[in-house]
Structure formats: C-alpha cells, structure tokens
Design a protein around this nucleic acid. Structure first.
Lengths: 202, 202
DNA sequence: ATATACAAACCAATCAGTCGGTTTCTTTTT
DNA sequence: AAAAAGAAACCGACTGATTGGTTTGTATAT
C-alpha cells in the first residue's frame, strides 16, 4: 500500500507538478481511499518526502549499477554520459527531480529531508565517473561540469522536447572534454593559466 | 499599480515559490486590496503571466546591453560568462526563472505565453555571444553548451549556495572552451571525429 | 454626472486533515 | 477446533481554513 501510494505520488508529480499533485488527485490516481492513506502516512508532506526518498534511493542504486556496465566499453566516457542522460535526465525522473529541487528552495523541511539523498545520488555518479576515467585526469570538477551540462540540457528539453534529444550537443560536449584532457596531457603545467580566451584567438 | 503588483508578484514567487505565491500573499506584500487588484488584472494567471513577461523583457534588454559592454574588454568571453551569470543565474531572476520553467511544464497556457519571451532572451544571449566570439569559432552550439553549464550551476546553487559562487568551475569551463577552440584551430578537419575518449587516453 | 480607482464583504470550490464506524486478519481462550 | 477478543487496514462523510474570483458600495476626479 505504501508502495502503491508512493508510485501514484510520483506519477502525479510528473503529470500535474508539485502544486497540482493534491491529495485528492493522488488518491484518485492510486485508487485508494482517504482513510487508507491516513493509516499509512501522517501527512501529505510525509508522503511526498517518502516518495522523493524512494525515487532518489532507486536512482542512486541505478547509478551504482551503471558503473558496473562500463567495464569493457570501448568509449566509457561517452557511454557513461549517455546512460546517465537516459536514466536520470529524461522521463519521470527528470520531471519529478526538477519539481522537487524547485520545491526544496522554498520548503526548508523538505529540503532538509531530501538534501542527504541528493548528495547520495551525486556520490554515486562520482563512483561511476571514477570507473570511466583514470584518476589523474581531472578530479571531480569535470564530472561536476558534465552534470551541469546535463542538467541545463534537461531543463531545455523540459521547455521544448527536441527531435534528436540533444544528442548532437552531448557529442560536442564529449569532444570538448576530450580536447581539454588531451591538451592538459600535452602541456600539463600550463593549467590553470587564465589568460585571454576568445577575444585574443581571433 | 500594475507595476506595483507585478513587482510584488515577482518577490512572492521568489520568497514562496509558484504554489506558495497565493493571491492573498501577493496582495498583502503589495499592500493592495483585492478589489484594486481585480480592477487591473482579470485573473491570477494573467497577473503571473504579466509579471513573468515583464521580468523576461527586462532580462532580454539587459542581455542586449551586456553585448555593448564587451567591446574593448581584454577577455570578452570570460566577461560575458561572468556578466550573464551575475545577472541571470543569481538572485531573484534565477529563482523566479526556475519557478516559471517548472510551472510551464504542467501549465500549457502559461507555457504558450512564456515560450516567446524565453526564446527572446536566448536570442539576446546569442547576440551577445556574437560580440564576444569570432563567427568562425563554433556557431551557436558552444553558446548553448555554455548556457547549459550556467543553468546546471544555478540549479546547484539553488540547492546549496556555495561560498565562492562556483567561480572556480566557471574558470574551468572557460579553460575547457579555450582548449577546444585552440585545438579546432590547430586541426580543423579532425572535427567531428567521435573516437574513443577517456577510456583510451589512459 | 459619469467613469475610474479602490475597498471590504462575500462566494463556491478545494485544500489537508480528522473522526466514527466497518471489514479483515491474527491471536488468544476455551 | 470453535469462539471470542483484539489489532490493523480501510472507508467516506465531515471540518475549518484557504483558494481564486465576484459583488456591492464608496470615494475622487473629470
């Protein structure tokens, strides 16, 4: 029953958004009476938090599983990005994640509860990243940048789904990253330099 | 009066979020009676939309102004990124923008109204980008990627403000971009190659 | 005198949450 | 094994508060 309600809650968060996912809507979606709900959850906030924690815990487990699939891949970095994109920045996970993150900004109680699970997911990404890249190639900063790119890309897709799912831009990103790592390898001491960039390249 | 209500609406969207910015809250913030509000706006949706359009129109104008400040800058690309970050991915603009984008996903009417102004803002960025980079260096794709990075970074800051405001990572991003443009300049025909990335660099 | 600008009381609908009562399952008693 | 007792799961009507929106009334200014 708890699982049923949590699933319905996630579906409603995706379909109607945080403010549209009222108790009545969730219960109708789940086909559960009000009394039954009250028996399992003390408040709506608790239901939402439980649903969020469940989704994020699943995601963290899935992220750790991704790491295992990378061994033996020809291009582990590209494979990692594609898998993370498909699993975490598309579909329901993406939609609900954005609803939750935005809701957390103005809901300290929810934020306090979800912050640990957000961190846990990121840590799982970091583990997968470690499987895809040699230690020496950039610490976690490049991973952070990669996640930023995927997030911004997901936000774009939320506003207007693109036919190719931004695949070309993810390709560009891997190219950019490759060149960066290559140039660092060629002349490791020049980094960080901080000199003029595009203005001077012309 | 319209301007007063719009300003209060934006403040409430930042302070309480989309679902927390009820009419009562907004009117209290503005110090305006219900009747006075009804005299100027036919519905809450209209007020929200007007506020959003006002904010985005301001932003687009500001983005065009940024382009003008770039001439003569030593490092135009870094300057552009910093200005865009400070003006559009911090503070109230960031908070309200995220509220609106997420709300648009489940509110087709709002989405239909705001989509043009979102596009207008991006176009203004594109204009500023044109002022910061030579035409030949990457079309708009690199700009798109840059905006993705800033968006993802802003989302991170929304969850947990960092002491340095992610300045170090923006520096890393400019470094990555510089290397990419440099390597493209050195061997323009190798792009796009699509070969193995990190897995093979080891 | 008429229109604009505002104010406050008011409205139906909906919100999250509660409450008395019923069913269903388990445990204990005989 | 049968009956009694108790707990857990569940139901739907109800509550008070709040929502977006309306209506009635009153200034002020042209």
């Amino acid at each position: 029953m708890r699982a049923l309600l949590i699933e319905a809650t996630l579906d409603c968060l995706q379909a109607h958004g945080f403010h549209g996912a009222s108790l009545s809507v969730i219960l109708k979606q789940a086909g559960v009476s009000r009394g039954a709900w009250a028996h399992h959850f003390p408040s709506k906030q608790e239901l939402i938090a439980a649903a969020a924690e469940a989704m994020m815990a699943d995601a963290a487990a899935a992220a750790r599983a991704v790491a295992a699939t990378l061994d033996g891949q020809e291009d582990r970095f590209t494979s990692l990005i594609e898998q993370v994109w498909q699993r975490f920045y598309c579909g329901r996970h993406r939609d609900v994640l954005f609803e939750l993150v935005v809701a957390c900004r103005t809901d300290r109680a929810l934020a306090g509860r979800l912050h640990p699970v957000f961190v846990e997911l990121i840590d799982s990404f970091r583990g997968a990243w470690g499987s895809a890249t040699p230690d020496a190639t950039g610490g976690g900063d490049l991973l952070t940048l990669t996640l930023f790119v995927l997030r911004g890309m997901a936000m774009q897709e939320m506003l207007a789904e693109s036919p190719d799912g931004q695949a070309a831009l993810r390709g560009l990103w891997t190219g950019v990253t490759r060149d960066f790592l290559q140039s660092r390898h060629d002349r490791p001491l020049r980094r960080p330099s901080g000199g003029p960039l595009l203005g001077a390249v012309r």
